[in-house]
Design a binder for these strands. Structure first.
Length: 353
DNA sequence: CAGGCGTGGGC
DNA sequence: TGCCCAAGCCT
């Protein structure tokens, strides 16, 4: 005997069946494609992730194809999408599943959760969509919809909030069609119960939504503030050598843009004028290896590249040298390297490259 | 477990 | 412009 569903659940699923978008991973239940789409969509809007999903499924039609690729190929394809640890974990997990699990995904939530890059949300999504396992997802959309409809002002980034919203999501889940329910509540949050100025007047939950009926939609969900953004000053040395080469370094330390490439970087606590650059310790050691002909500032106004947690105030210095840079990178092959958007924007804008 | 991790869009 | 937010995860 099926359990009686809450009215919320029924209305939500009916809304979804009439309003869902036709997305390429919808209607599939192959865990490879669902996993791939879920990793791409972590903290990422559909509009931004969709072209990457198409690129990846074309380049790697099976998990074996992904496992056989190099990390450099995967990162290059991921370039521009951000949160690059997702790409490294994706590749790591593909290789692991291919070689250790005979190409088959773990068959349940618990097993999926052990995969690198797969947390509570992603394991729930794959388990519910691919295996019909009744595990509720809790993402930003779920927090927003539940906090408003139920009128809950518990901070969503507190440990108690995380626990309570997970329990509520599970309570309203349709155990007969968990995948449909999970996608329905996320789609509703993404398309109707949006963060700012939702159209509450025509909402299907107008009658029962606590936030709407107490005029507190704009106050929910509650989120505790995080630390302020940090400012960093980046000085990139764009080397142009006699033999049309430049220098690219790979960022190997932990921190932003791990494994991606960039020009030689001098980071300082304050903005640098040309005199300070020329006398800087790192520049001095650089000039011992190269015969420097000229140094000019490319952008008079520093480029401010904004990450979610830091602002990178950036100057690009064009350094012409008379040196034959035998271990340099040919300028013509720069585009083969995975670089951050900050660097990609410079390259696109710079005539000599 | 608080902080780190990208980029782009909306208002 | 500045700030928030987005189909979160890792350490």
């Amino acid at each position: 005997m099926p359990k009686k569903l809450p009215l919320f659940t029924k209305k939500l699923i009916i809304w979804y069946l009439h309003n869902k978008r036709d997305l390429p991973w919808r209607g599939k239940n192959d865990p490879y494609f669902i996993w791939l789409s879920e990793i791409i969509l972590q903290q990422t809007r559909v509009a931004q992730g969709l072209p990457y999903y198409l690129k990846f499924t074309k380049a790697f039609p099976t998990i074996k194809d992904l496992a056989m690729a190099t990390e450099a190929e995967v990162l290059k394809l991921w370039q521009g999408l951000g949160y690059y640890s997702r790409a490294r974990n994706l590749h790591h997990t593909a290789k692991y599943i291919h070689s250790e699990l005979n190409g088959r995904f773990p068959p349940d939530f618990k097993g999926l959760l052990k995969l690198k890059g797969v947390g509570d949300y992603t394991a729930s999504a794959i388990a519910s969509i691919c295996y019909n396992e009744p595990t509720a997802v809790v993402d930003g959309n779920v927090y927003r919809v539940l906090s408003r409809v139920l009128g809950i002002d518990l901070p969503i980034n507190s440990s108690s909030g995380i626990r309570v919203f997970k329990e509520l999501a599970q309570l309203y889940l349709d155990p007969e069609q968990p995948g449909t329910y999970n996608q329905a509540i996320m789609e509703f949050g993404a398309r109707y119960c949006v963060p700012k100025n939702p159209e509450c007047g025509t909402c299907i939950f107008k009658e029962e939504c606590v936030a709407f009926n107490t005029n507190s939609v704009s106050e929910l969900p509650v989120k505790l503030k995080k630390a302020a953004v940090r400012k960093r000053h980046f000085n990139y040395l764009v080397i142009l050598s006699e033999d049309d080469k430049t220098i690219l370094n790979q960022r190997t330390k932990k921190g932003i843009w791990q494994q991606l490439y960039e020009f030689p970087l001098i980071e300082t606590s304050e903005e640098l004028a040309i005199e300070s650059l020329l006398s800087h310790r790192d520049f001095q050691s650089f000039s011992k290896k190269f015969e420097i002909a000229s140094v000019t500032l490319y952008n008079e106004q520093p480029v401010v590249h904004k990450l979610s947690h830091q602002h990178l105030i950036t100057k690009f210095w064009i350094v012409e040298t008379n040196t034959i840079a035998c271990d340099g990178t040919p300028i013509s092959s720069i585009k083969e390297y995975a670089v951050p958007v900050l660097i990609e924007n410079f390259i696109s804008d710079f005539p000599a490259i």
